[in-house]
Amino acid sequence: MTRILVIAKNTFRENVRDKVLYNLILFALIMIFTSLIIGQLSLGNEVKIILDLGLASISIFGMLIAIFLGIGLVYKELDKRTIYVLLAKPVRRHEFILGKYLGLLYTLLVNVAVMTVGLELALLYQGETAWSVFLNLLPAVFMIYLSLALVTALALLFSTFSTPALSALFTFFLWIIGHFGRDLLYFGELSKSVFVNWICAGIYYVIPNLSIFKIMGSRHIIQSLSFYRPMDPSVVAAAFFYCLLYCAVILSLSIAIFLRRDFK
């Protein structure tokens, strides 16, 4: 466990030195503060616009950070041949993978926290003082973080056997397909062939369903108005366990692939 944490700590340090990270955070913060101007055009929906644009910025830029940093996690070590030094020490391969993953998760946590503070400051500047809005923002950000954890696991999986460019493509396309899961299932149900139905259902369950993490939009955050549906904590809990299980599966697969790699 100590070895995993040491690798995680070093991965975090390595990520912090990456300039791409700062550019993305800066851009996300600019987007969040731009929402203050855009919100003024909305005929009284300023808070909603700030929340929507803010949450989307956290999600999209978080995803970009997860992909760009995740794809290089293993590949960089192989490319620079530092993997030889590492594995010559008493570090097991699964510890290396888990350490890398946790390091990136920690980096993402810090980034998401910075962007969330930016969003809350934008809301404060707009004059939003209701505690409920600020508190309800946290589960929404948590859901985004879960989806980022899943994307990171996918990027890491591809990073164990592919080049960064291909890994980025694979992860990005899986991210898109992950939003169309239900359509795939529906397509299978429409088909008269049992075989097609089975195939579609199989793909539906194998591909991560990312749409379940997008259920927390601004409508769940602004609850002061009667027409917004109240948030259901059991949905957040179910999403958390889905993410946990899925990440465990992907990481196990990554470890299995990494164990079989020959570094000679």
Partner: peptide, 21 residues
């Protein structure tokens, strides 16, 4: 709605602003 990739609320804001304009 399908193309929004889960960012339905944000896309709704964009269309609402577009409607106002």
């Amino acid at each position: 709605k399908k193309m929004a990739l889960g960012y339905d609320s944000l896309l709704a804001d964009i269309y609402w602003l577009r409607t106002i304009q």
